[in-house]
Design a protein around this nucleic acid. Structure first.
Lengths: 198, 198, 198, 198
DNA sequence: TATTAACCGAGACGGTACGTCGAGTCTTACG
DNA sequence: CGTAAGACTCGACGTACCGTCTCGGTTAATA
């Protein structure tokens, strides 16, 4: 009746999964968060609504799925052998990620939605942000190992000082986040905490 | 409302306005952002939907109306005669405001929604956040006048360094924002920028 | 936003009501009972689904509304001054009604559905069929008054004998119900029950 | 079903067939016609939907399968040697069958559905009702042979006069069909058509 | 005895329609 | 003119079944 189907007892259709994720992503970028509807995603993906509801609980759930890959892929810090270069590079990557159209848009939309939905906020933090937080720690932990930072540095607070201003600009003031700004944050941070050996 | 409606040939009903604002506020706290609907507000306020649409353009518009008074009232910094005490007090007040149930909930909800709605975000920044930003500048400008901060201090960047971590915790990580944290931010800031005269 | 609306505090839109009834009727005739869907009726009538649900509880409810006028209009027996002519005329009208495309189709569909839905069956009998039954009694009661039938005639049973075979053909065997057949039923009936004065 | 399924190269599983028929029958009695769904039958019978679609074209097709045995079994008239007793007995059996919960429910449901589906109605008449009609003729044909009825009797019309009122009560008015009523129908019929020898 | 084709259960798939909710618009009667 | 009331169109929600299409495993006639 309907053309080609891909039912399969042992496992879902990867084709349908990809179509849904891409459709949701596209709609978010094109029409914004309110423009992402289950009905719209289904239509655009060429998929039945029921198929979406079978695997995702809400449009937020879909967007989380689109986010997780990107974040790990784009935001894993590399080792440049030097705390300053590590931090400058990582903070810049974070800024680029947050302000870029596609993946950053998903992140902003989800953090925005989290303000309206405590349960989803808890899940976002437990499943996604904590992973990112772990990646963010890496440059600082390496710096402590290298002796570039005191071993008594409060890394949690340090992360807030470095990442806080970047997210604040993105989420609240809407100011751009140029490289100069992130570099400045790193420099100020090292002035205070660095051992002078870095 | 009193049960009887109140036509008024010369001007709008202040009674209706207050009922709407309170109903919206109550619903936000009780049921969250999604629980605030025009229909629900109208029913709760004992007001016709049309009356709401006549004076507000959306539920976000109503919530903005509830926010503006509170922010000016609660977040105007006092002068303690000393940059450290000024900043510590102000940052603490900001943290309290953001994390408190009612007014902070409205703020978080609106910033959350702004992530989904660029036009509303622009308006939020132009009409509300810029006013708050001006209030936030006061302690720093006073410190420059007093000579406690160099006159070359980039106040915009300084604000981002002070307020950014606070908003980051509130909006992203969900960590609490204790006085110890805000005090630490101020201390670190003054270590770097202070003239030593403060 | 949508063109012309006709909201009105004091009363529903007669225009919408008529459009719904006609659309339902048309769909029934064109596509059969299964082809009558709330969604389809709404689309065809140019009416919102919500408007239908506001005034009718189901598609059956709509069809009942289309039926009631027709039945009273078409099946009220006239007085020909003679039991034989009265009954022949009435039975023929019933047969025509039942076998005709539009109104008869509605009747058949509803009686068919009543077989699946005891609650609806009860309502159909209480609100519609009993009215028709009352109309069907008229010729027989007149005949008793005229002395053409014994006053001891069991009118209920008589009605079953006259109307039963007609409905049986329509609903069960699908045989046509020609005038010859209905006339024969009347003749046989009068042979048995008539006083010979008719 | 036993929990293990039973592939069979040459021929279908009688076990599955019975499970489906019983499940359909049970669901019809418990939840009515609308409560009979292919999914529900499959689940209840412990059978795959595909197995149902392999052997039946629709839920109506399943119910027809449950009907055919019962009708032949229960509605074959016996020979009492006398037209009056033959007809009284047969008409009473028909009335019992139609008004009883299980088999009668299936019959009523199918006749009801036939009002909505002309193709199914044609099939119902061709495959089932015509067989029943043949059985219904038997007592009358025997009576003609015996000389109890004139050989010129129009048996088709006679059947409508006898069976029509019974079906009318069952399908339309919902009145009970007591023995007194069926006996009366037979008596009236014989008054008119009998040769007086019966 | 091993092969293998028809049947079986399970269940994912693309769809249609369901009945509900809220959005934003429009009309009315009243004060 | 502003108000309460509420009917209107519209879009999306999440659910139930539809009928189709694999999939991996079972069974029994045949090679």
């Amino acid at each position: 009746m309907t053309g080609t189907h891909h039912g399969n007892r042992y496992g879902r259709s990867e084709e349908a999964r990809q179509a849904v994720l891409h459709a949701a992503d596209d709609l978010l970028v094109e029409r914004g968060f309110a423009g992402v509807t289950i009905e719209g995603v289904a239509a655009r993906a060429g998929v039945a609504k029921q198929t979406i509801y079978r695997w995702w609980s809400s449009k937020v759930d879909i967007l989380l799925d689109t986010l997780i890959d990107d974040m790990a892929k784009e935001l894993t810090p590399r080792d440049h052998g030097d705390v300053s270069r590590d931090l400058r590079a990582h903070l810049h990557k974070v800024a680029l990620f947050l302000t870029r159209a596609d993946a950053g848009a998903v992140f902003r939309a989800l953090v925005g939605h989290a303000q309206h939905d405590p349960a989803m906020a808890a899940r976002l933090r437990a499943d996604y942000l904590s992973q990112q937080r772990a990646r963010d720690r890496i440059p600082l932990e390496r710096a402590v190992e290298r002796g570039e930072l005191s071993s008594e540095t409060d890394i949690e607070v340090a992360l807030d000082e470095l990442l806080g201003p970047v997210h604040y600009r993105v989420l609240v003031t809407g100011e751009p986040v140029p490289r100069k700004f992130t570099d400045h944050l790193v420099d100020q941070f090292l002035v205070r905490y660095g051992t002078g050996r870095g």
